[in-house]
């Protein structure tokens, strides 16, 4: 028989509660997966009924500090296989070493957590710059992104502060989730529950895109052309939704 595989509800809070429960009861999981997981024949799948305590987050912050907590959250947003198990071991060590857990980079779980968190944060930072809005005819700003990690919430938070007096929608094309902002709050909705009334662009949209392309093509210095450097900073995976890059794709 394989070691036990525990299931959680695919929310951050549910995962934290499960991990804290396992640690508290001294249970060593063989695997942790969310409920969409299809187990194989040898798996010993266990779905525990655990009370979803909202203060799990506070417990973690008080024990390990805000820096470690944020890293845990970023790892949760990643698509790395077995991220749950990495987090289990990270939190286990976090309870032991408290805030100093971040210094223990010789532990695999700490090293992994830091690297993955950095990777997620990096992608979200890149999208803060590379995301492009198009203005629809009803003046709503609309953008599409295709991130590897589930960073829509992080990106939304950024634009909530930046474009607070605009209506905007950002769609994660791969996951089929939209973030909708109505000048007050942002809401995450599934594409199944939401259809755009219009996808017609505003009158000035094409004009502005043209101006932007002119600017982009003018600002590079020909004598310094360096395509490798450009691709290093702006990998091709971002180009698809970038207005100025459609000529080069």
């Amino acid at each position: 028989m394989n070691e036990a595989c525990f299931l959680y509800e695919d929310t951050f809070i549910s995962l934290l509660n499960l991990i804290l429960y396992l640690i508290k009861n001294n249970i060593k999981p063989g695997n942790i997966q969310n409920t969409t997981y299809t187990p194989n024949l040898l798996d010993n799948v266990i779905s525990l009924k655990i009370e979803e305590k909202q203060d799990a987050i506070r417990t973690i912050i008080e024990c390990m500090g805000p820096y470690a907590y944020r890293s845990i959250y970023y790892v949760f947003l990643s698509t790395i296989e077995q991220k749950e198990l990495i987090l289990y071991y990270f939190i286990l060590n976090g309870i032991k070493y408290q805030e100093k857990v971040m210094y223990h980079r010789n532990l695999r779980c700490v090293q992994k957590t830091i690297t993955i968190a950095k990777y997620v944060l990096h992608e979200s930072h890149k999208y803060k710059g590379f995301l492009r809005f198009k203005e629809l005819e009803n003046h709503i700003l609309y953008a599409e992104i295709e991130p590897v990690n589930d960073i829509l919430y992080l990106v939304s938070n950024h634009f909530k502060k930046r474009l607070k007096n605009e209506y905007w929608i950002i769609k994660d094309v791969k996951r089929g989730i939209l973030s909708i902002y109505d000048k007050k709050n942002d809401y995450l909705v599934s594409e199944d529950d939401f259809t755009l009334k219009t996808t017609m662009l505003s009158k000035t949209e094409m004009e502005m895109e043209k101006l932007w392309k002119i600017f982009y093509n003018t600002i590079g210095i020909r004598e310094r052309k360096n395509d490798r450097c450009r691709k290093n900073f702006m990998p091709k995976k971002y180009w698809k939704y970038m207005t100025e890059m459609d000529m080069e794709l």
């Binding site: 803060k128 930046r162 982009y216 490798r228 900073f233």
Partner: peptide, 27 residues
């Protein structure tokens, strides 16, 4: 306070020109 836009302490690059230099501001 109000209005359009804010600043990001870390700075944000919005694109990279053909010479590999960051485009952050409308220069």
């Amino acid at each position: 306070k109000d209005g359009l836009g804010n600043v990001a302490l870390s700075g944000i690059c919005h694109s990279f020109a053909s010479d590999g230099r960051c485009i952050s501001l409308l220069k």
